[in-house]
Every structure is written in C-alpha cells, then in structure tokens.
C-alpha cells in the first residue's frame, strides 16, 4: 500500500475516473452525465501524463543543445494526452448537440421521462 502514496498522482487520477463514473450513473440530467464523462476523461489523461513525469527533470524542450535523456521527462504520454484532450472536446460537442435536439423534441433531459414521453405520445395518437 505504500506504493499508493508514492504514485499519488495516479491514485488521484483514478479517483477522478471513479467520480466521473459515479456521476454518469447517478444523474438523470443528460448535461450532468456529460460533465461526468468529461471528468472521467480528464482522470484517464491525468493518469497517463503522470506516468511520464519524473521528479526533478524538466519539460521536453531541448535547452542549449543538451540532448542527454536524464534532463527531460518522458515526452510520449504528453503527446498522447494532447490528442486525447481534443477527442474529449469533440465528443462533448456532439453529445451537447444531441441533447439540444432531444430537448427541442421532448422538453426535458431526463432519459426516463423521455422514454415515458415517447411511449405516452404514441398512446395519444
């Protein structure tokens, strides 16, 4: 368990992942589920980036020609997370437009009420 305190960044990251997961499960409003999804993604990216961080080393930008690997942190997770952040923005934008389309039609964002509405609308007809 002492390892948990040494890798505390990863522990925090996965706690964020679980908080996002719980928000996704327990909130009915679609916007809140989206916030939960974003927190989940941020948690995974924090987990990945903190894997690359090495204490006492500097950002991976070459300074005055010093190419020794001991000076810089691991650049690979940083490049992966840069790709990931843009993925989560585009997914958020698509889900927001979906929820707007839903809201225009059913005037609520609570998926259970929407199902009831979809069925009740059919009974009216």
């Amino acid at each position: 368990m002492e390892n948990l305190f040494r890798n505390y960044e990863e522990a925090v990251a996965l706690i964020l992942f679980s908080i996002g997961f719980m928000t996704l499960l327990f909130h009915k409003n679609l916007l809140r589920k989206l916030i939960g999804m974003n927190i989940m993604d941020s948690g995974v990216y924090l987990f990945l980036a903190s894997m690359g961080y090495i204490y006492g080393r500097r950002a991976p930008i070459v300074e005055n020609g010093d190419l020794s690997a001991e000076r810089y942190i691991n650049p690979v997770p940083a490049s992966l997370v840069l790709t990931g952040i843009v993925v989560s923005v585009s997914v958020t934008a698509v889900m927001l437009s979906l929820s707007i389309r839903l809201y225009e039609r059913y005037h609520t964002l609570d998926l259970d009420v929407i199902y009831a509405a979809a069925r009740s609308r059919r009974e009216h007809r």
């Binding site: 960044e9 916007l31 990216y45 950002a59 840069l82 952040i85 843009v86 923005v89 958020t92 927001l96």
Partner: peptide
C-alpha cells in the same frame, strides 16, 4: 506542474474556455 506545458495551454484553452462556453 507536471512539466508538460503543451498540455497546460491546450487544457486551459479547450477545457475551461471552449467546453465551458459550449456547456
């Protein structure tokens, strides 16, 4: 603080800026 400035700029511009505005 995790020594990755690219991510800091992107997250600031995209996370707080654009996602917040879209929400």
């Amino acid at each position: 603080l995790l020594e990755s400035p690219d991510l800091a700029i992107t997250e600031a511009a995209v996370g707080a800026g654009v996602s917040g505005v879209l929400f």
